[in-house]
Design a protein around this nucleic acid. Structure first.
Lengths: 161, 161
DNA sequence: CGGATATCGACAGTATGCTCACCAAATTTA
DNA sequence: TAAATTTGGTGAGCATACTGTCGATATCCG
């Protein structure tokens, strides 16, 4: 195993390359890259996709709750939904509580989510492809465990329910 | 295992929560958060730390090579080194090749790297703490494998040597 | 009822992270 | 050597990500 930890390209020359933080960034960077490749016909970003998915599942959700559900800070999600509204993928309406902006997916948005099912599937497959099937299961299990148990250490913990 | 995949907080209500891309983003987000907590006395970011580490190991390296070594695009690294220069952690000098800016770490920069050794150790420990020791090894092995073999799919592949 | 408190959306400010395009300088090649 | 190509740094532009603060509105509590 240790010969695989020491990578074939010599990327362990620097201590940085073995740093889990560096690998976390690289993994995320690669994930975003594959996502954009597979979904380029739709002109959407990973964050926008996540937001749209939640709004679709919870019609009328407010921005703050949306942010909490996908673990984003309020400012970022504010900008994201404005961009989604500009693209016509969702609408923001004032709720009874005048502080709140309720979010609703548009027909166009729903259609895009349907069309994205295939590309998103490809994205997930390609991202994990370097691992054998058994390894993928183990990796996802460990990744889940890390993310869930470290949730509170995040600047913006994910809050469900 | 499947009961751990379905998380105790009900985070698998949405398909998003099981998406490896979402988990990649969360993992990275958490890593950055822990990094900033542990190193806050130094006022440095993960990217700045990575850049400084490489410049320290390769004195006189140019911006483009630095970017390639830590898998960043040249624009981002340009801004990063300018901020590092403003903080007095490194210097940019013109090389014989007039296109090139050669990077050198300053005494202050070296001192900071030394001081950071402990906090970086804590950071790595905390990030992986939710996993048992054996699990950590397996996780890092699989993460390495994913990142290395998907390297070319990244927008900015890491290039060594 | 009315003041303290909490919450929501918005804005300013900082730092990534990427693409495209540009200029200047170096290298390759005809 | 001169022309074509490549390369390094920079700037514009867009989209995250986060912190802090603010005003408006709701709610809680005496």
């Amino acid at each position: 195993m240790s010969d695989l930890l020491a990578d074939e390209k010599g990327q362990d020359t620097l201590p940085i390359y073995g740093n889990p933080g560096h690998l976390a960034r690289r993994f995320h960077q690669i994930a975003v890259s594959i996502f954009l490749n597979e979904t380029q016909a739709f002109g959407i970003t990973p964050v926008q996709f996540a937001a749209l998915t939640v709004v679709s599942a919870y019609p009328g959700v407010d921005q703050r709750s949306l942010a909490r559900m996908i673990a984003f800070d309020r400012s970022t999600i504010g900008d994201v939904v404005i961009r989604l509204e500009k693209k016509g993928l969702l609408q923001r309406r004032n709720g009874k509580d005048k502080r709140i902006k309720c979010l609703f997916i548009s027909g166009e948005g729903s259609a895009m989510l349907e069309g994205l099912a295939g590309p998103i599937g490809s994205f997930e497959r390609i991202l994990l492809e370097p691992l054998a099937e058994g390894e993928q299961k183990i990796f996802m299990y460990l990744l889940h465990k890390l993310v869930n148990q470290n949730n509170e250490l995040s600047r913006v913990p994910l809050e469900v329910g």
